[in-house]
Design a protein around this nucleic acid. Structure first.
Lengths: 212, 212
DNA sequence: GTCTATAGGTGGATAGAC
DNA sequence: GTCTATCCACCTATAGAC
């Protein structure tokens, strides 16, 4: 349910992910670093967060962090990749539920809401704001994340319109972009007010705009 | 038309604004500093921009900047205040035009678009992302900006509904928040893709949702 | 009002011991 | 893998000459 939350997804030692210099040993430490870094970026931004912040929270030294993520750009790229993986996994779960389109969209908005309830901004929404200052490798990953969101939404919207469970005019991609932009923006504002309701109000309106 | 653009509003020497330590002499330098700082914050964020950046662009020293704005928080607060003043001035102009509600809303969206076309994010949208790292004086000003936007939109929306030129269900304040959130978010995404069309598509959809 | 000079802190990053 | 120690660039900010 939650997205890349320390308490949720993926921390116990596994051999699935390549981490320290692409060796096949994922120490678990890398994941803990990513967990903390992720939260810090979501709340303070990539520029508003430092190796020192992460190190202090984890009780290790900065040098240790550099062992796992030599440069901050490396860390940033892995943050986005992991976030996208987790997000796409959630979307796949929604697909597997075989709900109707409207329910899937509700679920989609709920993913954002879960992040917001942790007083966090969407990782990629935050990074989009800092876009101009990011290493180019991060920028590329960022677009990939939004492209993936867009294409998932397009599929759901078109299927919903075809089946008659959704009603809207114009190309699905326009609606998809409207959804992403509006949810990200609503999240941004809701968080700066500390009022989740400001987000849910927008999500509700987006949904009801697709009803007959 | 443009919002707080160096080329537009307000730079020639005047006695209206208090600037250096609230003396009654506005050197013009303060405004030039604000012009550069504003653009840098809009493109790189408050944390992504420094006194050194501004100084270099203006060909002065950092010490000179500190004379006009002793601390970065001072600079930030004045940036928001000026931005809000200029923005509200544009809204007043829209009001004075005595257009119908729909035209006013179109004008409202156009204000955002003008900023976006300069490859900038809305100053306050950018700062909203950095909210958690901002000095508290800046946070307060930030809310004031969005509150003012909200109340202007509420007035326009209610007048439009009463006159029959707009059609929507539910409280005007919900629609107002939807507008702000969606425009800010669409701007955020459009800018990170460098595609203004991503913004105008959303603005168009927001408008047509208010038609019969 | 603007400069030089500098203080004091923190940023990311590396070398080398353990 | 994690540590200590350190480098150097950059940050905000101030003192004091001009």
């Amino acid at each position: 349910m939650a997205i890349a939350t320390p308490a949720s997804g993926s921390q116990s030692p596994r051999k699935t992910n390549a981490s320290p210099h692409d060796a096949l040993v994922a120490s678990g430490t890398s994941e803990r670093i990513l967990d903390v870094a992720e939260r810090l970026v979501q709340t303070r931004g990539f520029n508003g967060m430092s190796y020192a912040d992460i190190a202090t929270e984890l009780g290790v030294t900065k040098a240790s962090l550099h062992y796992h993520f030599p440069s901050k750009a490396d860390l940033g790229v892995r943050l986005i990749s992991r976030y996208e993986e987790n997000f796409l996994r959630e979307l796949a779960t929604l697909d597997a539920s075989r709900s109707d389109a409207k329910k899937k969209l509700r679920g989609y908005a709920h993913l954002y809401e879960t992040v917001l309830r942790q007083d966090r901004m969407c990782l990629c929404g935050m990074l989009a704001a800092e876009h101009a200052t990011l290493p180019s490798e991060m920028r590329a990953r960022l677009s990939a994340f939004f492209d993936a969101n867009e294409s998932w939404l397009v599929d759901v919207l078109e299927a919903g319109r075809k089946s008659g469970s959704l009603s809207f005019e114009g190309p699905a991609i326009a609606k998809a972009r409207m959804w992403i932009g509006s949810l990200e923006g609503a999240m941004l504002l809701a968080r700066s007010y500390g009022q989740v309701a400001r987000f849910t109000q927008v999500a509700t309106q987006l949904l009801s705009a697709l009803s007959l």
